[in-house]
Amino acid sequence: MERLTFDLATQPLRELNTFLHNDAKDGKARHVTVLNPDGAHNIAVGLDCPVEVEIIGHAGYYAGGMNKAASVTITGSAGTGVAENMMSGKVHVKGFASNGAGASAHGGLLVIDGDAGLRCGISLKGGNIVVGGSVGSFSAFMAQAGRMVICGDAGDALGDSLYEAVLYVKGSVKSLGADAQYEPMTDEDIAAVASLLDQAGLDHDPKAFRRIASKRSLYHWNADANQEY
């Protein structure tokens, strides 16, 4: 069977997730449509095969969490922790996403067409995040690897205590976090932003983005800093 539909108004969520973990992996469906998600938590979590899942409506917490290889699309909004700890594949939110979107993602691509809440990409570990709208405060806190492309604005303390993740912002930034700094855009940066925008299906001029990366001054303990950073 190529396509299958689950209606969460009449079928339990566990039935859907069990199917996606077992039957879909065995190739019993390539495309699964989920109707009436109605804000349920943990929809399509822990997938580890290249199945396409389309969630029609608003998803609750942790949708597409721990995703590996699968492609999950949410036509509405997503609750806290969408695509958290994603390993690979793609999660696409067509509405807005709540707090902690893409937290600690190791790989894959998270695309949010609307705004993302606070702490987007916190502790990012290698995944890529493209946000069509704006991100809330404390986004990319302690982000270690990967890239974030923000087409709108950013809130307070963007990139606080950044490690080696790189952030690109088109709009205004309310404030940078400790140890984050603006750096010149190189040709490589412009190519990276262009490629991510292309993958996300968003039309922006890559040259209009600013690069933010770590000053690396917090990497080593400085006993003379007197807690002033």
Binding site: A40, H58, G60, Y61, G79, D115, G136, S137
Partner: peptide, 22 residues
């Protein structure tokens, strides 16, 4: 607190849904 408490409301599929900012 969460969308799951709003999902049953009449006309919800065409409602303007947003998250209030801090």
């Amino acid at each position: 607190s969460e969308f799951r408490s709003l999902a049953h409301l009449p006309g919800i599929k065409h409602a303007t849904v947003f998250e209030p900012a801090p």
